[in-house]
Design a protein around this nucleic acid. Structure first.
Ligand code: ZN
Ligand code: ZN
Ligand code: ZN
Ligand code: ZN
Lengths: 166, 166
DNA sequence: ACTGCTGCCGTTACTATATAACCTCAGACA
DNA sequence: TGTCTGAGGTTATATAGTAACGGCAGCAGT
């Protein structure tokens, strides 16, 4: 393991910082980051790839044997509302928001994802040019944008190198 | 009904043209637009909104009583491969491709959708500026784009007028 | 203390979406 | 004829998501 990523059990510093930031953010929003919600958030954050609700449920059961689908879906709904995680529609899976820690004061920014076909790695972008192009295109037909899903599938840099002669 | 849109039973000229174009397109691709596939395509095209697989299945059963989920999913897979329809990921639903008739020689162009929250109307765009912005953003991080999902939720022009004081 | 209210969550049951696996048949072709 | 392929019927199952009810802690008003 060359990545230095901590496993599920040991709580590394990055994770602790992220959870503390989430806590602070919820406090400001007048929302309660309960033990359950924190557990689900930690499971999402410690995964290196987007996880489906049932994958999260399986892992959650280690800590909370009685957990059922509504347990995890309710927690996910909360985390989505707080802007702490995103849903990747194409994968029916959830990832931590990379901007949640920075917290520029706004919930729910519109994310863009690059999803690698080969290794499954998913990277979150917030490209303004893309957002603007989209807003322009919508405005041209009189459409008011509330919320945009942008998910690109393809080959990440590492996998492109590994398989050059496509 | 002021739209002039034909119902499910009467086959209007626009539909006939679309089906003929699909036929031609499949012929060129060496693919068979069988009766089943044509029926499913017609069901998708005659709907004014994106339809889910099971909604299509229900309608298909009128013509094909034995139809089951694999029946419709296999037809949908074929139509997706031929670029005759698209899937709207956020709705788990399918729409006809507005460009299928023009047929610039390429299958599978990357679509962009504007989905109205209020009336459900879904419009397909093919905005080059958006596609380029996205390709640029991806290239900047060494990502090779294969396929992009762009789905914007919001208020269409008509619904914006109807509810001005949001 | 009693009451009523709210938010969180356990629990059961269910709906919706999608796929696996196996089989038959028809057409192409050696 | 044997065999291969693609289409699709059929059954069962996997995966994703929700509805509905009930308990219980915390808090406000009386
Ligand atoms: Zn984000
Ligand atoms: Zn990769
Ligand atoms: Zn299209
Ligand atoms: Zn509308």
């Amino acid at each position: 393991m060359a990545t230095g990523q901590g496993g599920a059990t040991e709580m590394n510093t990055a994770m602790q910082r992220a959870l503390a930031a989430a806590e602070a953010r919820c406090l400001r929003a007048g929302a309660q980051l309960t033990e359950l919600r924190r557990q689900v958030l930690a499971l999402v954050l410690e995964a290196e790839q987007p996880l489906g609700a049932y994958a999260l449920l399986d892992r959650l059961k280690a800590q909370r044997p009685g957990a059922a689908p509504p347990t995890v879906y309710r927690a996910l709904d909360f985390l989505l509302e707080q802007g702490l995680i995103h849903k990747v529609e194409r994968l029916n899976a959830f990832v931590g928001c990379v901007e949640a820690e920075h917290d520029h004061g706004h919930h729910q920014h519109p994310p863009q994802f690059l999803i690698c076909r080969t290794c499954g790695a998913t990277v979150e972008l917030s490209d303004h040019a893309v957002a603007h192009a989209l807003a322009d295109a919508a405005r041209r037909v009189g459409f008011q944008v509330a919320n945009a899903t942008v998910e690109v599938e393809g080959l990440c840099a590492r996998c492109t190198e590994a398989a050059p002669a496509g």
